[in-house]
Design a binder for these strands. Structure first.
Length: 201
DNA sequence: AACGGGATGTTCT
DNA sequence: GAACATCCCGTTT
């Protein structure tokens, strides 16, 4: 027997306190950069958020821009809930609803650095390279097991756990990816220098 | 490194 | 019928 077996997530950093729903009761433009460095876990699997995008109600690229539908109705409710939608008929993408009820803003979670449950993520993604496990919104949902079943669930209750970041990271900003409307708004935020991004800034 | 095509659910015109 | 907040894999620079 080895005297000191290596834990599955040996490099997992210490976690900050759990974020409450009220964290999201602010402008999406404050919440989005503040999420960089926070740790997102779903049933204990996840990591440190490295890339997000802000979508505001008055932004033509936002799903809420044309008003409520059965799909996006959670965006028109109170903050601190998940909005999950299917992208291109294949992938899931996860958002966190922000601002006051009715404001219909949300942050798209685009990438994270795997820290917890890496073996589970590799299994779900059928992939070894840690860099590519969660380097995009669809990949991230597959790795964390996020589906439509998670939509409209509160973010401060299981299976979600969102831990505050410990330090204050340097934030990079740039234009959002993969959209055709409002393409020049610099509402993509990321962890400066991170290698766990969908694309460099 | 950049580009093209295929997969395909939900919403919108 | 087209568009879409994507990803993967093959082909071409």
């Amino acid at each position: 027997m080895s005297q000191n077996p290596k834990p599955a997530d040996a490099a997992a950093p210490r976690l900050g306190k759990l974020l409450k729903r009220s964290f999201f009761n602010r402008s999406v433009h404050e919440v989005a950069p503040d999420l960089i460095g926070a740790t997102l876990l779903v049933d204990g699997v996840g990591g440190m958020i490295t890339e997000v995008e802000a979508y505001h109600h008055l932004d033509p690229a936002a799903h809420s821009f044309r008003g409520p539908t059965p799909r996006n109705r959670i965006m028109f409710g109170p903050p601190g809930f998940a909005y999950v939608y299917r992208s291109y008929g294949i992938h899931w993408c996860a958002n966190f609803v922000c601002e006051a009820e009715g404001s219909a803003s949300a942050v798209l979670i685009r990438a994270l650095q795997p820290t917890h449950g890496v073996a589970a993520m590799r299994r779900r993604r059928g992939l070894q390279e840690e860099r590519a496990l969660c380097s995009g919104p669809g990949k991230l949902c597959e790795a964390l097991g996020i589906t439509i079943k998670h939509s409209e669930l509160p973010l401060d209750q299981p299976p979600f756990a969102l831990h505050a970041r410990l330090g204050k990271p340097e934030i990079a900003a740039g234009v959002r990816i993969g959209i055709t409307k409002a393409v020049d708004l610099p509402w993509r935020y990321g962890l400066k220098g991170s290698r766990f991004l969908s694309k460099p800034f």
